[in-house]
Design a protein around this nucleic acid. Structure first.
Lengths: 235, 235
DNA sequence: ACCTGAACACCGTTCAAGT
DNA sequence: ACCTGAACACCGTTCAAGT
């Protein structure tokens, strides 16, 4: 009575398949849903089967980070370091906007993944190729901070969430609870002006892309000035 | 046989006592150890007793963030906005260095806590008081990014962890595994120069405080230049 | 009315038993 | 030798039962 016809064999697991499924799971259900158990279920596999391909959950997370970082474009072949850095960072930003859970995952790691190191190393190389001293390249990388990875803490994204309760507030100019304006007048003022300046939609809020490039260019221009002045730390 | 002498009554729980104990627990055992169950045990209380004082774990975390943010010095009474901002950010940095787990907790929140909003609001007020337009103050806050809260992603802290395996590497100048230098030559070069420049201890690495102030001043000077030029966004 | 133990639905990971 | 189910030591939180 033994059945000859078997359940069709699943395409065999591989580290790549595990990591890709993890990225998809996190993209679709959020980072909190990325558990060994949920991932195993998505792959039609018993949880312990995953441990053949990743040592533990930390290594899984490191693996998915590297898959995502691998999506960042390589540096342009251009002699203008500023242009190369700018485009690379904007590429990184686009990647991390496609996978919004990755920024926090990167910051939660206590040790950077190989792909992160390679990315940072390549960026240092761009500065060095542009004539930067090791010293200046070093400090400039620090000054870039998380912006080098294409994200910065968008503090006002969160502030906007705090200020606006529902989507249909019936107070045209600000749409902020009066209590909010009382407690945080300066934030409220900024929010109102940002809404007014934008003719199209009231309360659309900040143009994230503009803010990002504003900050990026501010840094880049300051850096360029230091470079032209032959800045050196006195260490 | 009923005992008349009772176990001495614990000093009654209060939201303040719960939050303070949570800060202590996270400081001493790390953010991962901050669970409702561990916290209850530290307070000599059954886990469910905590829910009288905080609605759930998210509210607990929001509460401990606000306790810590409350440690930041108020702004100086000074007419020089640059000096006021600088000292305030350095105060915030000192606070977050005393509680290193808080930065990630802040970034993990999807909504900023009241104390964070008050802090940011006050900082906007400092710029406004210094004559900044709402527009410029707005964009400058974005440019500050997480630095406004006294932390930036210290990418090279992590890179250093990745490069150095043990405390007793027997290779004086770099103390980096040869493999690391091969794969990430630009990072390695920076690490070597940073070590050499510092006469005292080989491999001491970067001066975090110097890096932080370098980046901070770069931003502040760029901001000051914009302010003096009457910069305005063309929105 | 207040407090709380047990229970529920989850985790990551170990380990021994099964093939 | 390989795979895997059950088990262990945790979570946050619900809920009913106890005082």
């Amino acid at each position: 009575m033994a059945e000859q016809t078997e359940v069709p064999r699943r395409t065999p697991l591989s580290r790549q398949r595990v990591l890709r499924a993890a990225v998809t799971l996190a993209d679709e259900a959020g980072i909190d849903s990325l558990s060994m158990r949920n991932l195993a279920q998505d792959l039609g596999v018993v949880p312990m089967a995953l441990y053949k391909h990743v040592a533990n959950k930390d290594e899984l997370v490191a693996g998915v980070i590297d898959v995502v970082i691998g999506e960042i474009d390589p540096p342009l072949a251009d002699v203008d370091w500023k242009h190369v850095v700018r485009e690379r960072i904007l590429s990184a930003r686009r990647v991390l906007q496609r996978h919004p859970w990755v920024s926090l995952a990167i910051e939660s790691q206590q040790t950077p993944t190989p792909a992160i190191l390679a990315y940072l190393d390549s960026m240092v190389g761009t500065f060095r190729g542009g004539g930067f001293s090791v010293d200046l390249a070093h400090h400039v990388m620090h000054a870039m901070g998380s912006r080098a990875l294409g994200f910065s803490q968008e503090l006002f994204d969160a502030a906007r969430n705090a200020g606006r309760t529902g989507a249909t507030s019936p107070e045209p100019p600000a749409a902020l609870p009066a209590q909010f304006a009382d407690r945080f007048p300066n934030l409220a003022e900024i929010a109102v002006v940002a809404s007014h300046d934008d003719a199209s939609v009231v309360g659309r809020g900040c143009d994230d892309q503009f803010e990002f490039e504003f900050a990026l260019d501010l840094l880049l221009e300051g850096i360029e000035r230091l470079h032209q002045q032959g800045w050196t730390s006195s260490r």
